[in-house]
């Protein structure tokens, strides 16, 4: 694609003998918003770190698209990596110098103010996250890599975080790649959904497409045999079957009630089914 901004080519990353990321290739377009979901240990964070340059892949490479430089990539993770002994002022000055940021004042997040003299280690998890985000946004990044930070924030900060990211998406046309366990209120933000399992992609779809193509059938009752069941759960009280890929004509032809479900549940179904629909090239 001509407007690819960041691309991973045949990445393999090993921890000891096990490959956390196995021969993964994916390209991200300018301004595209992607969520990478998957089970624990699927390799999502590892992949993100490769894209950020924090981990050097054992095989393959990460290619920066035309016009993208390392200082235009922002990475924030729940590891909250910053020099703890510094004050906010020092952290900002350091970041400003390293990334050649021209604004003199650290960009403020509306409704979120911190004293410049406070030490980073005295900040709460949420405060550090937002601080780091504002540092990154001062870079005016073209790519923002977010690893599992959202769910650790309290509702107020969470709102501020998402608003800030959305603003960046609009103003800077930043490509945002988020790794998330649970999507909840962030479900509508991504345009593209990648699901990882066991170091590989098992799904790469546009969110709207996905919402259209995955339906749930609750309760007992037989399904016509030619309807593809992605995943079925069965407990004492309920039985759910997830259908993928769904076709509208089935709604007419059978009496079965096909429910639309949210992205969270979709992801759950995929992970549960570990359904390998296609390998992402």
């Amino acid at each position: 694609m001509s407007d690819t901004i960041l691309e991973a080519r045949e990445l393999t990353v090993r921890f000891g003998r096990k490959a956390a990321v196995h021969d993964v290739s994916v390209a991200f377009a300018k301004g595209e918003t992607t969520v990478i979901a998957g089970s624990n240990g699927a390799g999502k964070s590892t992949l993100l770190r490769c894209l950020a340059g924090v981990i050097v892949p054992d095989q393959g490479e990460v290619a920066l698209g035309p016009g993208l430089t390392r200082d235009k990539i922002g990475f924030i993770s729940d590891r909250l990596s910053l020099y703890e002994d510094w004050t906010l002022q020092e952290a900002w000055r350091f970041h400003k110098n390293e990334f050649r940021i021209e604004t003199r004042e650290m960009p403020r997040i509306e409704g979120f103010e911190l004293e410049a003299g406070r030490k980073i280690k005295s900040l709460s998890v949420g405060e550090r996250t937002l601080l780091h985000l504002s540092l990154l946004l001062a870079q005016r990044p073209a790519v923002l890599l977010v690893d599992e930070v959202v769910h650790g924030l309290d509702p107020f900060l969470r709102e501020k975080f998402l608003e800030t990211v959305i603003e960046a998406m609009d103003e800077l046309k930043t490509a945002v790649i988020m790794v998330n366990h649970t999507l909840s209120d962030t479900a509508q933000i991504p345009e593209r959904v990648l699901i990882m399992d066991d170091g590989r992609f098992i799904l790469d779809e546009r969110r709207e497409e996905l919402e259209r193509k995955v339906k749930k059938v609750s309760g007992e009752g037989d399904l016509p045999p030619d309807i593809p069941c992605l995943f079925a759960t069965s407990t004492e009280f309920r039985r759910d079957r997830y259908i993928y890929p769904f076709r509208e004509e089935w709604r007419r032809n059978s009496a079965v009630n096909f429910e639309g479900i949210g992205l969270d549940e979709i992801v759950k179904a995929f992970i549960g089914g570990a359904y390998v629909q296609k390998r992402v090239r």
């Binding site: 608003e163 959305i166 998406m169 209120d185 509508q188 933000i189 991504p190 345009e191």
Partner: peptide, 10 residues
Amino acid sequence: AKILKLNPNT
């Protein structure tokens, strides 16, 4: 977009 938690493109 901020209020609705939607992608601005949307």
